[in-house]
Simulated scan of single mutants.
Amino acid sequence: MATYIALLRGINVSGQKIIKMEHLRQIFEALPVHNVRTYIQSGNVLFEAEEQPTDFLSAQIEQTLRDALGYDVRTVVRSSEELAEVIARSPYAGEVQGEKEKIYVTFLSALPSESNIAQLMTFKSDVDDFQVSGHEVYIRCRESYGKSIYSNNFMEKKLGVAATTRNWATVNKLLALAKA
């Protein structure tokens, strides 16, 4: 058995796609998974399953959610080992300077093309910073994520792949829960 983390995009945000966590757990329990747990209301689901490719799990979860809810919910899945690697390779961990400064990770559903990454690099900012690393984009916001141009929608449009973003504290808490 392996531990996985499903990161659902756009649920319980601004009154859209409202899903109670108990209902979400019940939907996941219909899948061939075990020990389903949720963390906060923004669509973070931890579970155990036989070891398998995360893109297969994502597709299976998306279909199950579509059937249960009647609408699409993009889902990015990472194993607990992959999440540990995401944390370990952060270019900003330990570098947060100001009180307002925060780190975010945008989890990509697929590797972006080199041309899309090159286009994204043209949008460097004096206020915020980002780095693309594999299936993730690390974002350092010096003011606030809400004011940053590097929103989840921006990253999806520029990189041409589905994505979902979590703050650094949530990413670390998810790993701690996965290891517990």
Rank of each mutant, 00 (worst) to 15 (best):
Y150H: 05
K17A: 15
E82M: 15
A178E: 02
M1V: 11
V161S: 05
S148K: 03
A2D: 12
Y39K: 13
I117Y: 01
I103T: 12
G15I: 08
S79F: 08
K100G: 03
I11S: 06
S151L: 06
V33K: 11
D126S: 10
D72I: 14
S80G: 09
Q97F: 04
V33D: 05
E51K: 06
A118I: 11
D128C: 13
K102D: 06
D67T: 15
K17P: 06
V36Q: 04
S125N: 13
A180P: 01
T106M: 01
L174A: 05
Q52M: 09
A30L: 14
S109L: 13
A93G: 04
E101W: 09
F47V: 12
E81I: 10
R66E: 10
A6F: 07
K157T: 10
V86D: 07
L31Y: 11
E114H: 10
G146R: 11
S42K: 07
F123L: 14
V132R: 04
S125G: 10
I27K: 10
E82L: 06
R89L: 05
H135C: 11
K158W: 00
I5K: 04
F56C: 13
A49K: 07
Y145Q: 11
V13F: 05
K158Y: 00
F56I: 11
D128S: 08
Q26V: 04
S113P: 01
F123C: 14
P91R: 10
Y150S: 07
V127A: 14
T54C: 12
Q119P: 00
M121E: 03
N44H: 04
V77I: 13
K173V: 11
A88N: 15
H34F: 07
V76S: 06
Y150D: 06
R140H: 02
D67R: 13
E50R: 06
A84P: 11
F56S: 14
R37M: 14
C141G: 07
N12V: 12
V132P: 03
Y4N: 02
L7G: 09
V96M: 00
E22F: 07
K17Y: 00
S133Q: 14
K17C: 07
V171F: 03
A162P: 07
I87G: 08
I18S: 10
T64N: 15
Q41C: 04
A30E: 12
I27A: 05
R66N: 08
E101N: 04
I18Q: 07
R166Y: 02
E136L: 08
A49R: 11
V161A: 04
A6L: 08
K20N: 13
E50A: 14
S133M: 12
V171T: 12
A169I: 12
R166W: 00
T3K: 14
K147E: 07
E50L: 09
S148I: 09
A2N: 11
G70P: 11
A93C: 01
E95P: 04
M21N: 11
S14Y: 05
L46W: 02
A93M: 06
Y150E: 03
L177A: 04
I103F: 00
T38F: 06
E81A: 15
K157P: 02
G134W: 00
Q63T: 15
N44Y: 01
S113K: 15
V77P: 07
L46V: 12
Y145C: 06
V171D: 01
E114W: 02
